[in-house]
Nucleic acid binder design. Structure first.
Lengths: 340, 340
DNA sequence: GCATTGATTGGAAACGTTTCCACTCTTTTT
DNA sequence: AAAAAGAGTGGAAACGTTTCCAATCAATGC
C-alpha cells in the first residue's frame, strides 16, 4: 500500500495525496477528507525511508546514552520519550558503553541517519574535541556542563554540580563534621566530577577546614564497586573522618558496605551522603541522605531547548535546574571537635 | 558524497561500486581495492534510507524494552548491543512505559521500519493477542516464557522461573524455615509471576508445608516501593513468618526496609531472599541472598536464536538458561519449629 | 467580455541505492 | 578453430516519497 495506490483509489494524483497527508495548504477540504479517510481505511503506512531519502533529513532526534544501567539516565530517557512522543519527531536511541566515545558514535550516526538534533545523556566533555565540529545540527548535553566548550551549536542543561557539592558539604559541616572524606569521579576526565570536587573545596575553604585531595579524595567510576573500593582505600590509608560525601548514590552504597565491613556503622560512626536522589535511597537501611537531581526536569528542559533550537534556530544556551538536599538517616549530628 | 561521486572518482560504474561496497562476487580484486580505498579516503557514508528503500526491508533488529530503569534489562541491552555490533545488523531500540502495550508498539514500528526481527525485553504474555499476528518476522521474547503462545514465529529464552522459585524456597526450608511469606508480581498478569508463585507452591507442597495465598502472598509491581508495601501489608496482617521470599531483588530491598521499620532485623528476625542477582545485592548490608539470573546469557542466547531464525529460517524454539543460587548474609539458619 | 488573480490539481523529476540484464573479453571445451 | 562458458563491467530501471512547475478552472476587477 503506497501513495500511488492511494492516489489510484481516490482518483487524485500522487502529488495531491502527498500534500493532503502532510497537511500542506492548497488542498481542498473535500480532497483532504477523502484522502485521509481512504488512508485510514486501508491502513496506509508511509514509507519512512522514501520520505527521508527525498527530504535529505529525517525527522528523528538522536539520543546518545552513555552509561548503561544508570537509573537516573533511565528516568530521563523515559521523560524524553514521553516529551518527544507528543511532537512530530521520532526518537532514535543509541546505547553505548562507558569506554566508547559518544562523539565518534554521534558523528557516525548523524551521517547515517541525518537527525535534526542530538541529545547526549552523560559522557564527558573531553570527548567533545574537533571531531564534534562535523556535527552542525543543534545538540544538547544533559547532566554535563558544556558552556566552556567552543561549539556554537551545543547547549547543555545541568544541575549546578559545583553548588550541589558545596551545599552537601555545608550540610555535613552544619551537623558538626570537620573531617569529611570525598569519593567521586576522576576530575581530569569528567567535568561533572571536577565541578563537584571544586564545590567541596569551596565549602571546606569557606570554613577554614583542611582538605587534601591526596589524603581525603578517592576517584573511580560511578558504580557500586568503585564506591566500595574507594572507601576501603580511605579506611586502609588510616585517614580519619567522621563523614563521607560520595558524588553519586551508587558509590555511597558501596562505601557504606565497605565501612560496615570495617566495623564502622552508618550513621553511628560515619555519616554518609550521596548525590542523585535515586529512588533506591529511601528504601535502604539507613535511608541514604542525598542531593536529589530532578531527572525529569533535566530531561524536559533538554528536549525543550533542543526543539526550540531546531524549530526557531535559537542559539545555544546553558541552563541549570534546581536540586534539593534530602537529609536522611545516613546523616548524624556530632559534637564538633576542635581538630585541625 | 554518494555512490555516483565515488563511481566518477574511480572511473567505475555505480553498479560496480555498489557491488564492491557490498562484497558481492563478480568484482575483480583490483576494482574492489581501488573502490574501497577511495571510499575510505573520501569518508564516504552509505545512505541508509536509499538502501533500505530499495531493499524493501531494513537490516535492523528491533528491541522493544518494557520497564524503564530495570537494571537487569540494562545489562541485557548492553549485551545485545555488543552482540549485534559484531554483525551486519543495526539495532533499533524502542523504550516504553509499563502501561503501554509492547505488542501494539512493535506492530507499528514493524510497519514503519521493517526490521528483520524483534527482541522483546520484558512485557507480559497477555499482550500477545491476535494483534501480534500482524508481525510475521522472527521474534524472541527474553525473560518471559512464550511457549504457550500460539505463534509460530515467536521464540523465547528464559530462566526456568518455576524452578528458580522452587529452589529458592527449598534453600530457605533447608535452613529451617517453615513459615515463608512470598512477595511477587500479579500472577494473573505476568507469566513469570505465575510460574514463580507455582514454583514456591511446588516446594511447599513437597515438604507438606501450608501455604495460603491470601495469607502468605502479596503481589505488586517489581519496584522498591511495591516490595515495601507488600511487606508492610504482610506484617500488619499479623501473619507470622521467619522468612520472606521476594520474586525480585528490588522488592526484597523494599521489604527489608519495611521489616526494619517494624523492628524486625534481617537476618536476625527474618531471612530474606530475592531473585535477579542485581549487582547492588552484594553491596547491601546485609548482602542480599538471591537467585542470580544470567542476564548476559539470556541476552546472548536471545540474539543467537533470533539471528539463526532470520538467516536460516529455523523454527521458533523455547529455551532456558541456567541460574545460580547465591546464599548471602540476608539468610540465616534457624531452629526448625514443629509448627503446622 | 477580457485580463488577472488565486485556488486546486496533475505530472514529472529527483533523492541514493540495489539489482537485473546485456555486453565485452578471456578462458575453456569440443 | 569454433563454440560455450565464465568473469567482470556498464547502464538503466525501480524503490516510495516530496516538491516544483505547469495546467486548469472559477471568481474577481476593469
Amino acid at each position: 500500500m503506497t501513495i500511488k495506490d492511494l492516489a489510484q483509489k481516490t482518483g487524485y494524483a500522487v502529488g495531491t495525496v502527498s500534500r493532503a497527508l502532510n497537511g500542506h495548504p492548497n488542498v481542498s477540504p473535500k480532497a483532504r477528507t477523502i484522502i485521509l479517510q481512504a488512508a485510514k481505511e486501508s491502513g496506509f503506512q508511509l514509507n519512512t525511508n522514501a520520505k527521508q531519502l527525498k527530504q535529505t533529513h529525517s525527522n528523528a532526534i538522536l539520543v546518545v546514552v552513555k552509561g548503561v544501567g544508570n537509573e537516573l539516565f533511565s528516568e530521563m530517557l523515559e521523560t524524553i520519550q514521553r516529551c518527544v512522543a507528543q511532537t512530530r519527531y521520532q526518537l532514535l536511541v543509541d546505547y553505548m558503553d562507558e569506554d566508547m566515545s559518544e562523539v565518534a558514535r554521534a558523528v557516525r550516526l548523524c551521517r547515517e541517519r541525518k537527525p535534526l538534533g542530538v541529545i547526549f545523556l552523560g559522557g564527558s566533555n573531553q570527548n567533545f574535541n574537533k571531531d564534534f565540529s562535523a556535527i552542525d545540527i543543534p545538540c544538547v548535553v544533559v547532566t554535563n556542563n558544556a558552556s566552556t566548550l567552543p561549539f556554537a551549536n551545543l547547549s547543555s542543561v545541568t544541575t549546578d554540580d559545583r553548588e550541589v557539592a558545596r551545599q552537601a558539604i555545608e550540610t555535613m559541616i552544619a551537623l558538626g563534621h570537620r573531617r569529611i572524606a570525598v569519593i567521586g569521579g576522576d576530575p581530569t576526565i569528567s567535568d561533572t566530577s571536577r565541578l563537584r570536587l571544586e564545590g567541596c573545596m569551596d565549602a571546606f575553604r569557606a570554613h577554614g577546614l583542611p582538605f587534601d585531595t591526596a589524603r581525603d579524595y578517592r576517584a573511580g567510576r560511578y558504580s557500586w564497586h568503585n564506591g566500595y573500593e574507594a572507601a576501603q582505600d580511605l579506611i586502609r590509608s588510616g585517614s580519619r573522618f567522621t563523614a563521607i560525601f560520595a558524588a553519586a548514590d551508587v558509590m555511597a552504597v558501596g562505601a557504606i558496605r565497605a565501612l560496615w565491613e570495617n566495623g564502622l556503622r552508618v550513621p553511628r560512626d560515619v555519616s554518609v551522603m550521596g548525590v542523585d536522589g535515586l529512588p533506591l535511597g529511601s528504601y535502604l537501611v539507613p535511608q541514604l541522605a542525598t542531593v536529589i537531581q530532578d531527572g525529569t526536569a533535566l530531561a524536559k528542559r533538554g528536549v525543550e531547548i533542543l526543539l526550540r533550537s531546531i524549530e526557531e534556530g535559537t542559539p545555544a544556551c546553558h541552563e541549570t535546574v534546581p536540586f534539593r538536599i534530602a537529609r536522611r538517616e545516613s546523616l548524624r549530628r556530632i559534637q564538633a571537635q576542635g581538630e585541625t
